[in-house]
Design a protein around this nucleic acid. Structure first.
Lengths: 219, 219
DNA sequence: GCGTGTTGAATAAATGTTCAATCAAGACCG
DNA sequence: CGGTCTTGATTGAACATTTATTCAACACGC
Protein backbone atom coordinates (compact mmCIF):
# COMPACT_ATOMS: atom_id res chain seq x y z
CA UNK A 1 0.00 0.00 0.00
CA UNK A 2 1.69 3.06 -1.22
CA UNK A 3 -1.07 4.92 0.58
CA UNK A 4 -2.59 3.25 3.64
CA UNK A 5 -5.37 5.82 3.51
CA UNK A 6 -6.76 4.99 0.08
CA UNK A 7 -10.38 4.89 1.27
CA UNK A 8 -10.72 6.76 4.54
CA UNK A 9 -13.73 5.66 6.58
CA UNK A 10 -13.72 8.83 8.60
CA UNK A 11 -12.90 12.49 8.28
CA UNK A 12 -10.34 11.94 10.96
CA UNK A 13 -8.74 9.24 8.87
CA UNK A 14 -8.86 11.48 5.82
CA UNK A 15 -6.90 14.08 7.75
CA UNK A 16 -4.34 11.51 8.80
CA UNK A 17 -4.08 10.44 5.18
CA UNK A 18 -3.47 14.00 4.09
CA UNK A 19 -0.76 14.44 6.71
CA UNK A 20 0.75 11.18 5.55
CA UNK A 21 0.93 12.34 1.94
CA UNK A 22 2.40 15.70 2.86
CA UNK A 23 5.04 14.02 4.97
CA UNK A 24 5.77 11.57 2.18
CA UNK A 25 6.11 14.21 -0.51
CA UNK A 26 7.58 17.17 1.33
CA UNK A 27 9.08 16.02 4.62
CA UNK A 28 8.67 17.30 8.14
CA UNK A 29 10.09 20.74 7.43
CA UNK A 30 7.24 21.63 5.07
CA UNK A 31 4.49 19.98 7.04
CA UNK A 32 2.00 22.79 7.61
CA UNK A 33 -1.67 22.76 8.46
CA UNK A 34 -2.41 24.62 5.28
CA UNK A 35 -0.63 22.00 3.16
CA UNK A 36 -2.56 19.30 4.96
CA UNK A 37 -5.72 21.13 4.02
CA UNK A 38 -4.69 21.27 0.36
CA UNK A 39 -3.76 17.60 0.42
CA UNK A 40 -7.31 16.47 1.03
CA UNK A 41 -9.05 19.44 -0.46
CA UNK A 42 -10.62 20.79 2.68
CA UNK A 43 -10.17 23.92 4.71
CA UNK A 44 -7.27 24.04 7.17
CA UNK A 45 -9.68 25.04 9.90
CA UNK A 46 -11.35 21.67 9.63
CA UNK A 47 -8.27 20.12 11.11
CA UNK A 48 -8.92 21.98 14.34
CA UNK A 49 -12.39 20.56 14.52
CA UNK A 50 -10.87 17.13 14.86
CA UNK A 51 -7.54 17.78 16.52
CA UNK A 52 -6.34 20.15 19.17
CA UNK A 53 -3.32 21.06 17.12
CA UNK A 54 -0.50 19.87 14.96
CA UNK A 55 1.27 17.95 17.69
CA UNK A 56 -1.73 15.88 18.63
CA UNK A 57 -2.35 15.14 14.97
CA UNK A 58 1.17 13.89 14.36
CA UNK A 59 1.26 11.70 17.43
CA UNK A 60 -2.06 10.21 16.34
CA UNK A 61 -0.65 9.58 12.87
CA UNK A 62 2.34 7.85 14.39
CA UNK A 63 0.17 5.59 16.52
CA UNK A 64 -2.03 4.76 13.56
CA UNK A 65 0.88 3.86 11.30
CA UNK A 66 2.76 1.78 13.86
CA UNK A 67 -0.37 -0.09 14.89
CA UNK A 68 -1.10 -0.83 11.25
CA UNK A 69 2.43 -1.92 10.51
CA UNK A 70 2.59 -4.14 13.57
CA UNK A 71 -0.66 -5.90 12.84
CA UNK A 72 0.18 -6.26 9.15
CA UNK A 73 3.49 -7.97 9.78
CA UNK A 74 2.38 -10.16 12.65
CA UNK A 75 -1.00 -11.22 11.30
CA UNK A 76 0.16 -11.88 7.77
CA UNK A 77 3.07 -13.89 9.08
CA UNK A 78 1.08 -15.88 11.58
CA UNK A 79 0.61 -18.99 9.49
CA UNK A 80 4.04 -18.98 7.90
CA UNK A 81 6.78 -21.31 9.13
CA UNK A 82 9.19 -19.45 11.40
CA UNK A 83 12.07 -19.17 8.96
CA UNK A 84 9.67 -17.77 6.33
CA UNK A 85 8.43 -15.26 8.92
CA UNK A 86 11.95 -13.95 9.27
CA UNK A 87 12.31 -13.69 5.50
CA UNK A 88 8.97 -11.91 5.21
CA UNK A 89 10.00 -9.35 7.79
CA UNK A 90 13.27 -8.71 6.04
CA UNK A 91 11.50 -8.38 2.70
CA UNK A 92 8.97 -5.91 4.07
CA UNK A 93 11.74 -3.66 5.33
CA UNK A 94 14.29 -4.19 2.58
CA UNK A 95 12.52 -3.96 -0.73
CA UNK A 96 8.97 -2.92 -0.06
CA UNK A 97 8.08 -2.32 -3.70
CA UNK A 98 7.67 -5.93 -4.74
CA UNK A 99 6.04 -7.19 -1.58
CA UNK A 100 2.80 -9.00 -2.26
CA UNK A 101 0.94 -6.35 -4.18
CA UNK A 102 -2.20 -5.31 -2.41
CA UNK A 103 -1.53 -4.69 1.24
CA UNK A 104 2.23 -4.70 1.45
CA UNK A 105 3.74 -1.50 2.72
CA UNK A 106 4.81 0.44 -0.35
CA UNK A 107 8.26 1.89 -0.38
CA UNK A 108 7.14 5.43 0.06
CA UNK A 109 5.34 4.31 3.17
CA UNK A 110 8.74 3.76 4.73
CA UNK A 111 9.68 7.33 3.92
CA UNK A 112 7.04 8.54 6.33
CA UNK A 113 8.19 6.14 9.03
CA UNK A 114 11.73 7.40 8.58
CA UNK A 115 10.61 11.02 8.82
CA UNK A 116 8.74 10.38 12.05
CA UNK A 117 11.45 8.19 13.50
CA UNK A 118 14.05 10.88 12.94
CA UNK A 119 11.88 13.14 15.09
CA UNK A 120 12.15 10.56 17.84
CA UNK A 121 15.81 11.55 18.19
CA UNK A 122 14.79 14.85 19.73
CA UNK A 123 11.22 14.29 21.00
CA UNK A 124 10.29 12.01 23.86
CA UNK A 125 6.68 11.53 22.81
CA UNK A 126 7.88 10.06 19.53
CA UNK A 127 10.67 8.04 21.07
CA UNK A 128 8.26 6.22 23.35
CA UNK A 129 6.35 4.94 20.35
CA UNK A 130 9.41 3.64 18.55
CA UNK A 131 10.68 2.08 21.75
CA UNK A 132 7.45 0.14 21.97
CA UNK A 133 7.42 -0.66 18.29
CA UNK A 134 10.99 -1.95 18.34
CA UNK A 135 10.16 -4.05 21.36
CA UNK A 136 7.14 -5.60 19.67
CA UNK A 137 9.10 -6.52 16.55
CA UNK A 138 12.06 -7.64 18.60
CA UNK A 139 9.90 -10.11 20.49
CA UNK A 140 8.28 -11.27 17.27
CA UNK A 141 11.68 -11.89 15.73
CA UNK A 142 13.11 -13.59 18.79
CA UNK A 143 10.17 -15.96 18.93
CA UNK A 144 10.61 -16.69 15.24
CA UNK A 145 14.32 -17.38 15.71
CA UNK A 146 13.61 -19.79 18.55
CA UNK A 147 10.90 -21.54 16.58
CA UNK A 148 13.09 -21.78 13.52
CA UNK A 149 15.86 -23.27 15.61
CA UNK A 150 13.45 -25.75 17.15
CA UNK A 151 12.18 -26.76 13.69
CA UNK A 152 15.71 -27.36 12.56
CA UNK A 153 16.22 -29.56 15.58
CA UNK A 154 13.33 -31.77 14.66
CA UNK A 155 14.31 -31.87 10.99
CA UNK A 156 17.82 -32.96 11.72
CA UNK A 157 16.67 -35.38 14.31
CA UNK A 158 19.45 -34.44 16.70
CA UNK A 159 20.12 -31.75 19.26
CA UNK A 160 21.98 -28.53 18.64
CA UNK A 161 25.68 -28.44 19.03
CA UNK A 162 26.17 -28.80 22.75
CA UNK A 163 29.54 -27.10 22.62
CA UNK A 164 28.92 -24.08 24.80
CA UNK A 165 31.26 -21.89 22.75
CA UNK A 166 29.20 -22.28 19.59
CA UNK A 167 25.76 -21.61 21.07
CA UNK A 168 24.04 -18.48 19.85
CA UNK A 169 21.72 -16.30 21.85
CA UNK A 170 18.36 -16.08 20.04
CA UNK A 171 17.87 -12.54 21.31
CA UNK A 172 21.18 -11.46 19.80
CA UNK A 173 20.36 -13.07 16.46
CA UNK A 174 16.94 -11.43 16.43
CA UNK A 175 18.44 -8.05 17.32
CA UNK A 176 20.93 -8.42 14.49
CA UNK A 177 18.20 -9.11 11.95
CA UNK A 178 16.18 -6.21 13.30
CA UNK A 179 19.13 -3.82 13.14
CA UNK A 180 19.96 -4.98 9.63
CA UNK A 181 16.40 -4.47 8.48
CA UNK A 182 16.19 -1.05 10.12
CA UNK A 183 19.38 -0.05 8.38
CA UNK A 184 18.06 -1.33 5.07
CA UNK A 185 14.90 0.71 5.52
CA UNK A 186 16.90 3.83 6.34
CA UNK A 187 19.27 3.43 3.41
CA UNK A 188 16.40 2.57 1.11
CA UNK A 189 14.47 5.69 2.01
CA UNK A 190 17.40 8.09 1.93
CA UNK A 191 19.59 7.16 -1.02
CA UNK A 192 18.98 6.57 -4.70
CA UNK A 193 21.45 3.70 -4.96
CA UNK A 194 19.90 0.23 -4.88
CA UNK A 195 23.03 -1.71 -5.75
CA UNK A 196 23.50 -3.06 -2.24
CA UNK A 197 20.03 -4.62 -1.81
CA UNK A 198 20.58 -7.99 -3.50
CA UNK A 199 23.95 -8.56 -1.87
CA UNK A 200 22.64 -7.77 1.58
CA UNK A 201 19.60 -9.97 1.13
CA UNK A 202 21.67 -12.97 0.13
CA UNK A 203 24.08 -12.37 3.01
CA UNK A 204 21.15 -12.28 5.42
CA UNK A 205 20.00 -15.54 3.93
CA UNK A 206 23.37 -17.17 4.41
CA UNK A 207 23.71 -15.70 7.89
CA UNK A 208 20.39 -17.17 8.97
CA UNK A 209 21.09 -20.54 7.41
CA UNK A 210 24.45 -20.73 9.12
CA UNK A 211 23.32 -19.34 12.46
CA UNK A 212 19.85 -20.73 13.17
CA UNK A 213 21.11 -24.33 13.60
CA UNK A 214 23.39 -23.09 16.34
CA UNK A 215 20.70 -21.30 18.29
CA UNK A 216 19.54 -22.93 21.48
CA UNK A 217 15.73 -22.53 21.44
CA UNK A 218 15.61 -22.80 25.22
CA UNK A 219 18.37 -20.32 26.01
CA UNK B 1 33.36 14.46 19.50
CA UNK B 2 30.19 15.56 21.08
CA UNK B 3 30.61 18.86 19.35
CA UNK B 4 32.86 18.97 16.29
CA UNK B 5 32.70 22.74 16.56
CA UNK B 6 34.30 23.13 19.98
CA UNK B 7 36.76 25.81 18.84
CA UNK B 8 35.53 27.39 15.62
CA UNK B 9 38.32 28.96 13.58
CA UNK B 10 36.11 31.55 11.94
CA UNK B 11 32.63 33.01 12.10
CA UNK B 12 31.38 30.75 9.35
CA UNK B 13 32.35 27.71 11.37
CA UNK B 14 30.76 29.20 14.47
CA UNK B 15 27.51 29.51 12.54
CA UNK B 16 27.74 25.90 11.42
CA UNK B 17 28.37 24.91 15.01
CA UNK B 18 25.31 26.78 16.17
CA UNK B 19 23.17 25.12 13.50
CA UNK B 20 24.62 21.80 14.59
CA UNK B 21 23.64 22.33 18.21
CA UNK B 22 20.14 23.48 17.34
CA UNK B 23 19.64 20.45 15.16
CA UNK B 24 21.00 18.20 17.89
CA UNK B 25 18.81 19.63 20.62
CA UNK B 26 15.61 20.54 18.83
CA UNK B 27 15.44 18.74 15.49
CA UNK B 28 14.75 19.99 12.02
CA UNK B 29 11.23 21.21 12.77
CA UNK B 30 12.47 23.90 15.14
CA UNK B 31 15.54 24.86 13.18
CA UNK B 32 15.11 28.61 12.68
CA UNK B 33 17.59 31.34 11.92
CA UNK B 34 16.68 33.06 15.15
CA UNK B 35 17.44 29.94 17.18
CA UNK B 36 20.75 29.62 15.38
CA UNK B 37 21.50 33.18 16.42
CA UNK B 38 20.71 32.42 20.05
CA UNK B 39 22.84 29.30 19.91
CA UNK B 40 26.04 31.22 19.32
CA UNK B 41 24.99 34.44 20.90
CA UNK B 42 25.04 36.60 17.83
CA UNK B 43 22.37 38.37 15.88
CA UNK B 44 20.35 36.33 13.37
CA UNK B 45 21.15 38.90 10.72
CA UNK B 46 24.79 37.92 10.91
CA UNK B 47 23.91 34.62 9.33
CA UNK B 48 22.93 36.41 6.15
CA UNK B 49 26.30 38.08 5.98
CA UNK B 50 27.88 34.66 5.56
CA UNK B 51 25.16 32.66 3.86
CA UNK B 52 22.58 33.42 1.22
CA UNK B 53 19.90 31.70 3.24
CA UNK B 54 18.91 28.74 5.33
CA UNK B 55 19.15 26.22 2.54
CA UNK B 56 22.69 27.10 1.61
CA UNK B 57 23.66 26.97 5.27
CA UNK B 58 22.26 23.51 5.81
CA UNK B 59 23.83 22.08 2.70
CA UNK B 60 27.16 23.53 3.81
CA UNK B 61 26.70 21.98 7.24
CA UNK B 62 25.98 18.65 5.65
CA UNK B 63 29.11 18.82 3.50
CA UNK B 64 31.21 19.85 6.47
CA UNK B 65 29.97 17.02 8.67
CA UNK B 66 30.27 14.32 6.04
CA UNK B 67 33.74 15.45 5.01
CA UNK B 68 34.79 15.42 8.65
CA UNK B 69 33.28 12.03 9.31
CA UNK B 70 34.83 10.54 6.20
CA UNK B 71 38.30 11.81 6.95
CA UNK B 72 38.04 10.83 10.61
CA UNK B 73 37.12 7.25 9.89
CA UNK B 74 39.51 6.72 7.01
CA UNK B 75 42.52 8.56 8.43
CA UNK B 76 42.25 7.13 11.92
CA UNK B 77 41.88 3.67 10.46
CA UNK B 78 44.69 4.00 7.96
CA UNK B 79 47.37 2.26 9.97
CA UNK B 80 45.14 -0.39 11.49
CA UNK B 81 45.07 -3.93 10.15
CA UNK B 82 42.05 -4.46 7.88
CA UNK B 83 39.98 -6.50 10.30
CA UNK B 84 40.52 -3.85 12.99
CA UNK B 85 39.43 -1.20 10.47
CA UNK B 86 36.11 -2.98 10.12
CA UNK B 87 35.72 -3.18 13.86
CA UNK B 88 36.58 0.50 14.25
CA UNK B 89 33.94 1.48 11.71
CA UNK B 90 31.32 -0.62 13.45
CA UNK B 91 32.26 0.85 16.80
CA UNK B 92 32.06 4.40 15.53
CA UNK B 93 28.51 3.83 14.28
CA UNK B 94 27.27 1.49 16.99
CA UNK B 95 28.31 2.82 20.32
CA UNK B 96 29.81 6.24 19.83
CA UNK B 97 30.00 6.89 23.56
CA UNK B 98 33.19 5.03 24.17
CA UNK B 99 34.78 5.90 20.84
CA UNK B 100 37.85 7.71 22.17
CA UNK B 101 37.22 7.85 25.88
CA UNK B 102 37.52 11.54 26.45
CA UNK B 103 34.02 12.94 25.97
CA UNK B 104 31.02 11.11 27.28
CA UNK B 105 28.12 11.31 24.81
CA UNK B 106 29.70 11.59 21.38
CA UNK B 107 26.59 9.85 20.22
CA UNK B 108 24.66 13.03 19.90
CA UNK B 109 26.74 13.74 16.85
CA UNK B 110 24.91 10.92 15.16
CA UNK B 111 21.60 12.54 16.00
CA UNK B 112 22.43 15.38 13.66
CA UNK B 113 23.46 13.01 10.89
CA UNK B 114 20.18 11.18 11.32
CA UNK B 115 18.20 14.41 11.18
CA UNK B 116 19.88 15.47 7.98
CA UNK B 117 19.73 12.04 6.42
CA UNK B 118 15.99 11.84 7.02
CA UNK B 119 15.70 15.00 4.95
CA UNK B 120 17.41 13.18 2.13
CA UNK B 121 14.26 11.09 1.77
CA UNK B 122 12.43 14.07 0.33
CA UNK B 123 15.17 16.41 -0.91
CA UNK B 124 17.46 15.67 -3.83
CA UNK B 125 20.22 18.04 -2.75
CA UNK B 126 20.59 16.10 0.48
CA UNK B 127 20.24 12.73 -1.14
CA UNK B 128 23.18 13.39 -3.44
CA UNK B 129 25.43 13.91 -0.46
CA UNK B 130 24.43 10.72 1.27
CA UNK B 131 24.72 8.80 -1.96
CA UNK B 132 28.30 9.97 -2.21
CA UNK B 133 28.97 9.37 1.46
CA UNK B 134 27.59 5.84 1.33
CA UNK B 135 29.69 5.17 -1.73
CA UNK B 136 32.86 6.39 -0.04
CA UNK B 137 32.31 4.23 3.03
CA UNK B 138 31.18 1.32 0.92
CA UNK B 139 34.44 1.37 -1.01
CA UNK B 140 36.41 1.75 2.20
CA UNK B 141 34.67 -1.27 3.69
CA UNK B 142 34.97 -3.37 0.58
CA UNK B 143 38.70 -2.70 0.43
CA UNK B 144 39.01 -3.63 4.09
CA UNK B 145 37.07 -6.84 3.55
CA UNK B 146 39.33 -7.83 0.66
CA UNK B 147 42.45 -7.00 2.63
CA UNK B 148 41.22 -8.90 5.67
CA UNK B 149 40.49 -11.88 3.50
CA UNK B 150 43.94 -11.67 1.92
CA UNK B 151 45.56 -11.46 5.38
CA UNK B 152 43.70 -14.53 6.48
CA UNK B 153 44.99 -16.28 3.38
CA UNK B 154 48.56 -15.57 4.31
CA UNK B 155 48.02 -16.46 7.98
CA UNK B 156 46.52 -19.81 7.19
CA UNK B 157 49.07 -20.45 4.55
CA UNK B 158 46.53 -21.90 2.14
CA UNK B 159 44.05 -20.59 -0.39
CA UNK B 160 40.40 -19.90 0.26
CA UNK B 161 37.88 -22.61 -0.19
CA UNK B 162 37.76 -23.06 -3.93
CA UNK B 163 34.27 -24.48 -3.81
CA UNK B 164 32.37 -21.96 -5.91
CA UNK B 165 29.21 -22.37 -3.82
CA UNK B 166 30.92 -21.15 -0.64
CA UNK B 167 32.67 -18.12 -2.05
CA UNK B 168 31.47 -14.79 -0.72
CA UNK B 169 31.30 -11.56 -2.66
CA UNK B 170 33.39 -8.94 -0.81
CA UNK B 171 31.03 -6.21 -1.98
CA UNK B 172 28.05 -8.03 -0.48
CA UNK B 173 29.83 -8.56 2.82
CA UNK B 174 30.86 -4.91 2.94
CA UNK B 175 27.31 -3.79 2.12
CA UNK B 176 25.98 -5.98 4.91
CA UNK B 177 28.33 -4.45 7.47
CA UNK B 178 27.45 -0.99 6.21
CA UNK B 179 23.72 -1.64 6.40
CA UNK B 180 24.06 -3.11 9.86
CA UNK B 181 26.05 -0.13 11.06
CA UNK B 182 23.60 2.32 9.52
CA UNK B 183 20.76 0.53 11.25
CA UNK B 184 22.62 0.60 14.54
CA UNK B 185 23.15 4.33 14.17
CA UNK B 186 19.48 4.90 13.41
CA UNK B 187 18.25 2.77 16.30
CA UNK B 188 20.81 4.30 18.61
CA UNK B 189 19.72 7.83 17.81
CA UNK B 190 15.97 7.20 17.92
CA UNK B 191 15.28 4.87 20.82
CA UNK B 192 16.16 4.84 24.50
CA UNK B 193 16.69 1.09 24.65
CA UNK B 194 20.33 -0.03 24.50
CA UNK B 195 19.76 -3.68 25.29
CA UNK B 196 20.45 -4.82 21.74
CA UNK B 197 23.89 -3.22 21.32
CA UNK B 198 26.09 -5.88 22.91
CA UNK B 199 24.30 -8.76 21.24
CA UNK B 200 24.53 -7.16 17.81
CA UNK B 201 28.19 -6.34 18.26
CA UNK B 202 29.09 -9.88 19.15
CA UNK B 203 27.02 -11.23 16.26
CA UNK B 204 28.86 -8.90 13.88
CA UNK B 205 32.08 -10.20 15.31
CA UNK B 206 31.10 -13.81 14.74
CA UNK B 207 29.74 -13.02 11.31
CA UNK B 208 33.01 -11.45 10.23
CA UNK B 209 35.11 -14.24 11.70
CA UNK B 210 33.03 -16.85 9.93
CA UNK B 211 32.68 -15.01 6.64
CA UNK B 212 36.00 -13.30 5.95
CA UNK B 213 37.88 -16.57 5.40
CA UNK B 214 35.40 -17.42 2.66
CA UNK B 215 35.80 -14.16 0.80
CA UNK B 216 37.74 -14.28 -2.42
CA UNK B 217 39.94 -11.15 -2.32
CA UNK B 218 40.20 -11.14 -6.10
CA UNK B 219 36.50 -11.57 -6.86
C1' DG C 1 38.89 56.71 6.48
C1' DC C 2 37.98 51.77 4.99
C1' DG C 3 36.60 47.25 4.98
C1' DT C 4 35.00 43.56 7.75
C1' DG C 5 32.09 42.06 11.24
C1' DT C 6 28.04 43.05 13.70
C1' DT C 7 23.67 44.80 15.15
C1' DG C 8 18.70 46.38 15.77
C1' DA C 9 14.88 47.74 13.62
C1' DA C 10 11.74 47.08 9.85
C1' DT C 11 9.14 44.31 6.54
C1' DA C 12 6.73 40.85 4.16
C1' DA C 13 5.32 36.38 4.04
C1' DA C 14 4.06 32.12 6.24
C1' DT C 15 1.94 29.75 9.87
C1' DG C 16 -0.91 28.30 13.86
C1' DT C 17 -5.12 29.15 15.75
C1' DT C 18 -9.81 31.00 16.76
C1' DC C 19 -14.48 31.89 15.69
C1' DA C 20 -18.83 33.09 14.01
C1' DA C 21 -21.57 31.67 10.28
C1' DT C 22 -23.23 28.21 6.76
C1' DC C 23 -24.73 23.73 5.36
C1' DA C 24 -26.54 18.90 5.29
C1' DA C 25 -28.80 15.20 7.54
C1' DG C 26 -31.16 13.22 10.80
C1' DA C 27 -34.28 13.31 15.14
C1' DC C 28 -38.24 14.99 17.27
C1' DC C 29 -42.80 16.82 17.43
C1' DG C 30 -47.20 18.90 15.71
C1' DC D 1 -46.44 14.56 6.44
C1' DG D 2 -44.23 19.41 7.41
C1' DG D 3 -41.75 21.99 10.25
C1' DT D 4 -38.28 22.74 13.63
C1' DC D 5 -34.39 21.54 16.47
C1' DT D 6 -29.99 19.51 16.98
C1' DT D 7 -25.73 17.89 15.73
C1' DG D 8 -21.67 17.62 13.34
C1' DA D 9 -19.02 18.93 9.18
C1' DT D 10 -17.23 22.66 6.89
C1' DT D 11 -15.88 27.15 5.60
C1' DG D 12 -13.93 31.92 5.18
C1' DA D 13 -12.36 35.64 7.44
C1' DA D 14 -9.74 37.44 11.10
C1' DC D 15 -5.85 37.50 14.41
C1' DA D 16 -1.42 36.85 16.68
C1' DT D 17 2.87 34.88 16.30
C1' DT D 18 6.76 33.21 14.08
C1' DT D 19 10.00 33.31 10.49
C1' DA D 20 12.93 34.65 6.71
C1' DT D 21 14.99 38.35 4.85
C1' DT D 22 16.67 43.15 4.08
C1' DC D 23 18.98 47.25 5.21
C1' DA D 24 20.84 51.25 7.16
C1' DA D 25 23.78 52.19 10.79
C1' DC D 26 27.47 51.15 14.22
C1' DA D 27 32.09 49.34 15.94
C1' DC D 28 36.68 48.67 15.36
C1' DG D 29 41.17 47.17 13.81
C1' DC D 30 44.22 48.57 9.87
Amino acid sequence: MDDPFADPTDTREAILGAAFRVLRDHGCADLTIERIGEAFDKSPSLVYHHYDGKDELLVDLLEFLLDGFESTVSEESFDLPPRARLDAYVTAMTDPTDADGEHAPGGRFLIVIVQLRAQAAVDDAYRDHFDRSDRVFGEFLERSVRDAAADRDVDDGHDVDDDEAHRRDPAAVAATIQTLATGAMFRWATTADRGWVDGVRSEIDRYLSATLPMVDPDA
